[in-house]
Amino acid sequence: MNRDIDKEIHNEAHGMTSIVKTVARFLMGIIFIFGAYIILYGHLTPGGGFAGGIILACGYILLTMSFGKEIGLRKLTDNWASILDNTGALLFLVIGLLGFTAGSFFLNFLGKGNIFDLFSAGTIPLNNIAIGIKVLASVFAVFIALSIFGRVVSDYVEDEEV
């Protein structure tokens, strides 16, 4: 991952200036670690899938905004983003449906484990991870759609007259 970024850091052709690129490269790892921590420890400390997913998406958005579209889309393309979006939603639904094996919808069928452990609380960390993937992918997809497809072209051809 770092090889592309090192090559691009003095390239003024796309993206912002090299000051922004250097700071963004320094911050990005910290942002990703923080997002992963927020998701994984969502059942023990404040946080959870929603907040962590949006933090991870903010990391990708920082990458895309500072280094330009090519580098950002090389890490996570929009097709992969929509695939991940569907995967997260389906994973959440499947975890809910697996509750039927023990009785009812969204039943916490795994063992509870010791309290205050990372691997505890049954299906709740799995649900957190599924929601984190879903929110990450959907927020990044919306950003990509707004910034690439959503530009306003001046010579727009009206294809049908209302």
Partner: peptide, 8 residues
Amino acid sequence: TGATNIVT
């Protein structure tokens, strides 16, 4: 539930 964060 085994989760210490009640909101979650």
